[in-house]
């Protein structure tokens, strides 16, 4: 087994592009669920809206990439309003139903034949992110390594921009949550009627929260497609939403650093487990292939199973997540 290789991969995964994308998406979900109590089961829909904001603008309208970035904010805002206006006055469950349905609708619509002239259909939109990489001070094809981390130049550029955005967004959310605005969101999370009785327009605040968290999700979507250099409908499947939920719960909802740490842990584990399984000594590997049919394909599945097992253990022994406080959690049961 090549432990050096396993660790190199794992370390690089620790702060890699996936961590950034999922952490940003999770910051958005944290605004929704962690601070406002909104059950959004379609965060990937906001990512897709952001991604196609760029994709559609460049592919169909053939406009500039940077205008596309601006458009993605418009798309996400429209989506948030469409989802929020009819549901936020209703009980919490309705938002979760509508968001999960909407995120799938977006994916299926984007890959459909009807929409192909606008979205590129199943093939999606490729080679549109040039203007972003043109600004890179790093040589795109060269490997850079610092300490235990090693990335291609193009990824270093994505990481520099991505982490800057992630930190800025996190600090912005922190500032907001320390303000009276954030206090009102948390009050609505605890009891909407109490907040309304005290003069807070709960509907309006929830709409603001949905917009903010959705926009942040949109940023994650844009970074994801820039990094992949393609917008593909099927990358925005519901599993992504649940991965984001996993990340948030691992970190602890309603805590400012949860999304970053949760995302980092999640991706490090996934990459570590996968590479370890692939690097098993031949004897062990062949035994496992014979007994439990551990094929290359199954390894990809098995890593999720193992992460799931880890989650179960977390739920059993540290249900409040890494940053959550058990004392606070106990209040729910009183």
């Amino acid at each position: 087994m090549d432990w050096g290789f396993i660790f190199e991969r794992s370390f690089s995964a620790m702060i890699g592009p996936e961590v950034v994308v999922y952490a940003i998406a999770a910051v958005g979900l944290n605004v929704h669920f962690g601070y406002t109590g909104l059950m959004n089961f379609g965060q990937v829909g906001f990512m897709a809206a952001g991604a196609y904001g760029v994709g559609v603008t460049v592919y169909w309208l053939e406009w500039n990439f940077w205008i596309g970035i601006l458009f993605s904010f418009v798309y996400v805002a429209v989506l948030a309003l469409l989802l929020g206006l009819p549901t936020l006055r209703l009980r919490a469950d309705y938002l979760s139903l509508v968001t999960i349905a909407a995120s799938e609708t977006i994916r299926l619509l984007a890959r459909s034949r009807v929409m192909k002239p606008y979205t590129g259909g199943v093939e999606g939109v490729n080679q549109f992110a040039g203007p972003f990489y043109d600004l890179s001070p790093f040589e795109l094809g060269k490997f850079y390594s610092f300490g235990p981390f090693k990335y291609l130049g193009r990824d270093v550029w994505v990481l520099v921009v991505g982490w800057t955005l992630l930190i800025l967004i996190t600090l912005m959310v922190r500032q907001l949550m320390r303000s009276p605005w954030g206090r009102t969101l948390r009050a609505i999370r605890e009891d909407e009627d109490a907040a309304r009785a005290l003069g807070k327009n709960a509907y309006f605040f929830k709409m603001q929260s949905l917009l903010l968290g959705g926009m942040i999700g949109g940023v994650a979507g844009v970074i994801q497609v820039i990094q992949k250099a393609s917008v593909q409908a099927d990358t925005f499947n519901p599993v992504i939403t649940f991965t984001i939920w996993t990340i948030l719960i691992v970190g602890g909802p309603g805590r400012i650093w949860s999304p970053i740490v949760g995302s980092s842990i999640y991706w490090t584990l996934i990459v570590f487990i996968e590479n370890t399984l692939r690097q098993l000594p031949p004897g062990v590997r062949s035994t496992l292939e014979d007994t439990v049919q551990l094929s290359d394909f199954n390894i990809a599945m098995l890593r999720f199973i193992l992460v799931g097992l880890g989650l179960l253990l977390l739920a059993r022994f540290r249900p409040q997540g890494i940053f959550g406080s058990r004392e606070e959690m106990a209040l729910d049961r009183r």
Partner: peptide
């Protein structure tokens, strides 16, 4: 309806009307 995960003081401060810091853009600037 005590807001369980807000401190007593936060519960109280929530009650004040017309708070400037409750406006989204102003909240960003302490």
């Amino acid at each position: 309806k005590a807001l369980a995960k807000l401190s007593t003081l936060e519960n109280m401060k929530l009650g004040a009307l017309h708070q400037r810091g409750e406006k989204f853009w102003q909240a960003l600037i302490p």
